[in-house]
Nucleic acid binder design. Structure first.
Length: 475
RNA sequence: GUCCCCAUCGUCUAGAGGCCUAGGACACCUCCCUUUCACGGAGGCGACCGGGGUUCGAAUCCCCGUGGGGACGCCA
């Protein structure tokens, strides 16, 4: 190797891409693929490219494009280039289509859809793998059928008939597929528009993609694409095929079964940090490390430690991570998120009680933003008390004690310590156990019998509000 | 049907022939902390799909089986 070739070699920057088709939202599987592609580029100081594969005009929608972009933004997976849209790159595909036609690597096929369908069915019934029969494939000395003037031909790739296509998959290892298993795939439709396998190859080539990191379901497309690269005279990128993510129940995720948009996790109260961390650990590992941020992840990430087998999604573990990130989240960010969630339930957050204090008191008890919002709503809105708790705790025998406490409370300095002392005094005076007094207070103030330390709750709620709420029960 | 891929606790995984009487995490159970509920802390339960090889030695390598998944579109 010449020294400058070597230089060029080591200077080759990593370029990865995420190439969703905008036929729906960004789901959890796509998000993980994007995350791994992104992390790989970051790890190697390369570029991460976003490409929208929208050549299926029938199913692609602008809403889906937006949904994918939103999902990426929420997760913080920023692209360095793009988004590129395949529909805007038609001239590139057409140019290379012509090249292939001219070089004899591609040819026109006039077989009709009906004809092809019949062929497929016949082959399936005979227990064969359905494949194009090569009717219009030009061969030396072969006489092609008469061209039908009224049929718009498709363009097929003339796939090699012999030999094997082999590659070293960066996740799955060596994979080898015989060319006899492949057929002459259609690379342009009757209307002249190019198809997926062809666009991908042209794009990956022209965009200089060095590592194609994508879903498992593309393994079977890879040999076809490699053949296409070779016919085009292009360098073949490296491939890494990620196994799929199964639902919580071990079933395959699909539109009607469990596949939800990453944005739904946002709606359901998950922090993007939690989703990211969870996804990173799903199918990839770094020893015993469980909790890490994306900076750390990008330093650690490699393709060697990706499991080749499918992974089942586990909401419980996501919840655990979410709880963790709730505890460490920036309070200001948390406050604005919770304020928004409360607003959706028509609860207006006021300056007092201080949202910051409330969150500090509550955030380590919740594992979800919606739950957290629901838990603290009573600070800004008189709660509807749980009837069973009222009956159980606000009993007639304790009411006189509360009545007396109420009087004391109205006189003291409003700090958690003073409040605690007041309650303690009442407890001692009446020879009761602490909960006997604390529980009814919880019910009167929070509406339920569970809360953090009651004196702290009262301190934050404010004297006036505590008095008012107690009063409602002691009339 | 044909081809391709996969296989460690319930789940996510560690494991690159001896460090493995298989480690960690979630979940579960017990106890501790405690002013209720949580949080937290300490323990516990729990797995190498089966069968053959190779080897002094296999969760790790090879073969067969079984099970699961994927692909076979003028979809991507």
């Amino acid at each position: 190797m010449h020294c400058f070739q070597f230089l060029a070699f080591i200077m080759t920057t990593v370029r990865t891409r995420f190439a969703p088709s905008p036929t729906g939202f960004l789901h959890i599987g796509g998000a993980r693929t994007a995350l791994f592609s992104w992390a790989y580029a970051k790890k190697h100081g390369g570029q991460f490219i976003l490409r929208v594969e929208d050549t299926d005009v029938e199913r692609s929608t602008p809403e889906a494009v937006q949904a994918i972009l939103d999902g990426m933004t929420w997760l913080g997976l920023a692209h360095d280039e793009g988004p590129f849209y395949q529909m805007q790159r038609m001239e590139h595909y057409k140019k290379h289509l012509q090249t292939l036609l001219a070089s004899g690597h591609a040819y026109h096929c006039y077989s009709s859809k009906a004809e092809l369908d019949a062929l497929r069915e016949q082959q399936m019934q005979a227990g064969l793998k359905p494949k194009y029969d090569g009717k219009w494939r030009p061969e030396d000395g072969k006489v092609l059928p008469e061209i039908l003037a009224n049929v718009k031909p498709v363009i097929r790739f003339k796939n090699p008939k012999e030999g094997v296509v082999a590659w070293h998959d960066m996740v799955k290892g060596d994979i080898e597929i015989a060319n006899t298993e492949l057929d002459d795939l259609i690379i342009a439709r009757g209307d002249g528009t190019p198809t997926y396998n062809f666009c991908v190859v042209v794009d990956d080539w022209e965009m200089g993609i060095t590592q194609v990191i994508r879903g498992d379901d593309h393994v079977n497309n890879t040999p076809r694409q490699i053949n296409l690269f070779k016919a085009l005279g292009a360098d073949v990128p490296q491939y890494a095929h990620l196994s799929m993510i199964l639902g919580d129940d071990g079933q395959k995720l699909s539109k009607r079964h469990g596949a939800v948009s990453v944005m739904q996790y946002h709606e359901e109260g998950y922090l993007p940090e939690a989703v990211l961390n969870y996804l990173a650990r799903l199918g990839w590992s770094h020893g015993d490390d469980e909790i890490f941020d994306m900076v750390q992840f990008c330093q650690w990430f490699d393709l060697d430690h990706i499991t080749p087998s499918a992974a089942q999604f586990n909401t419980e573990k996501l919840n655990w991570l979410n709880a963790h990130y709730l505890k460490t989240a920036d309070l200001t960010v948390l406050a604005s998120d919770i304020t928004e969630r409360l607003a959706k339930q028509n609860v207006t957050v006021l300056a007092e009680p201080s949202m910051m204090s409330v969150l500090e008191l509550y955030r380590e008890r919740a594992n979800n933003l919606n739950q957290l919002a629901a838990d603290i709503a009573y600070f800004y809105q008189v709660p509807v008390a749980n009837a069973a708790d009222v009956e159980k705790h606000i009993t007639d025998d304790i009411k006189p004690v509360l009545q007396a406490l109420y009087v004391t409370l109205s006189k003291i300095e409003w700090t958690a310590e003073q409040i605690h002392e007041a309650i303690n005094a009442a407890v001692k005076e009446n020879e009761l156990k602490f909960p006997k007094v604390a529980m009814p207070l919880r019910v009167m103030l929070a509406g339920i019998a569970q809360s953090p330390s009651i004196d702290q709750v009262m301190a934050i709620l404010g004297k006036e509000e505590v008095i008012t709420r107690m009063n409602a029960y002691l009339q």
